[in-house]
């Protein structure tokens, strides 16, 4: 088999029947993978942070532990679905990196969640959400998901308490009618 196999392969190499893929192809592939991972992670942090903001502004935890049914009923399931989808996507991307096999799936997955939750809580503790909400209320451009989520769904209790206006009043934030 030896010489036969070698000559068969080398003949294809000489005749360009098989060609080496360009180095740049792998460089571009690697960069896309890293960019995808970076972008996905940033989105995950934003989604986690949006989730915390939703819970806070809608007073979900104010119901107390006894009102768990109300809490479950009020959770933003579309956001939770987005977070889970993004986690699966990120997990798929991470698994394409060479380092990933050396750590168990559970470790990678939980590290990803913990890291995203950590950065999201820092973002949440900052003034980011108020600024974001204010900017989205003033903006004429609609950012998919976030515009509706921040301007209409976060702080629904406050909006319900308000006699008029389209936006929501939250912690003294400008609403759409106030800001115009």
């Amino acid at each position: 088999m030896s010489d036969k196999l070698k000559s068969k392969i080398m003949e294809q190499v000489r005749n360009n029947g098989i060609k080496m893929k360009s180095r740049w192809l792998f460089v571009v592939r690697g960069l896309s993978l890293k960019s995808g991972l970076g972008l996905g992670f940033v989105l995950l942090v934003l989604f986690f942070n949006a989730f915390f903001f939703y819970v806070q502004t809608n007073g979900l935890l104010a119901h107390g532990a006894g009102a768990w049914w109300q809490i479950i009923h009020s959770l933003p399931y579309d956001l939770i679905f987005l977070i889970l989808t993004l986690l699966l996507f990120l997990n798929y991307l991470v698994r394409r990196f060479d380092f990933s096999y050396s750590h168990p799936f559970f470790i990678i997955f939980s590290s990803l969640i913990l890291l995203a939750a950590f950065w999201a809580s820092i973002l949440f503790a900052s003034n980011f959400n108020q600024t974001m909400k204010g900017a989205l209320l003033r903006s004429k451009v609609s950012v998919p998901f976030f515009s509706d989520f921040y301007t209409r769904r976060c702080g629904m209790m406050d909006e319900g308490a308000r006699p008029q206006g389209n936006g929501c009043m939250m912690n003294g934030l400008p609403t759409d009618d106030q800001s115009q």
């Binding site: 196999l5 392969i9 098989i18 180095r23 060479d98």
Partner: peptide, 20 residues
């Protein structure tokens, strides 16, 4: 099995630039 061996070398050659 012989075809698989040949294919292994072909794949290695095609992806040689991806080898670290």
């Amino acid at each position: 099995a012989e075809d698989l061996v040949q294919q292994a070398f072909i794949n290695a050659f095609v992806n040689l630039n991806n080898f670290d």
